[in-house]
Design a protein around this nucleic acid. Sequence first.
DNA 1: CTTTCACATCAGCGTTGACTGACACCAGCC
DNA 2: GGCTGGTGTCAGTCAACGCTGATGTGAAAG
Lengths: 111, 111
Amino acid sequence: MMTSASTEVSPPDADLLRVLADPLRLRIVTLLARETLCTTHLVEETGARQTNLSNHLRVLREAGVVETAPCGRFTYYTLRPDVLAALAGSFTELAEAARTTYENDRKRPCP
Amino acid sequence: MMTSASTEVSPPDADLLRVLADPLRLRIVTLLARETLCTTHLVEETGARQTNLSNHLRVLREAGVVETAPCGRFTYYTLRPDVLAALAGSFTELAEAARTTYENDRKRPCP
DNA sequence: CTTTCACATCAGCGTTGACTGACACCAGCC
DNA sequence: GGCTGGTGTCAGTCAACGCTGATGTGAAAG
């Protein structure tokens, strides 16, 4: 059984999108999707300064996108898969709703 | 058959994400996913000024997210489903890669 | 214990981007 | 034709955000 509002979709989180919309942060996320890395690796992969990366990593951490794991003097950053999966689900719902609206020409009449 | 780089994922477009990261634009997209609307409807739904909406709709149009269809004095806006579907696919790939990395503890060793 | 290295934090600067008001344009209605 | 209402465009203003340099901290190496 479905909930009461069948046409209501759960929209993607705007704050999470804002976090991922930055080119450097998106690059970090893409790199972390393949393997867990520490800041030193990210510096040599992206070419950005350490301070700059640290700031962006803090944004990603506060948004719940990445987790930190200290290892000696290094700090490893791991991507949290569930956050990205939820985002993918939201966009899938949105795309399906849009496709239904598009194919059925569902439009609100002029006032 | 797959392309040569099997570990390479196609990352989401940063520009498209930047367009969707704005709260008002995301609200517009969510509304348009349910039904095709014209600017007047969006004004009463969102409470924003007409000028403000027109600017955001231009951004969405130039990003290829929406299509316009003039109808008398009104202009209808329709969401393009394929753009959202592609975005959902990118995030799904990214989430799956992140899950594999997470479960297998795949990490690059300290230098 | 001192030094070195990885990383985080802070204040400052420059740029981008969102919102607004005024204006121009086009399609119907009188 | 004149008028009204729906939309797009433009210049200006202000807040938000990203980048940087300096500084602090904590852990390993010597």
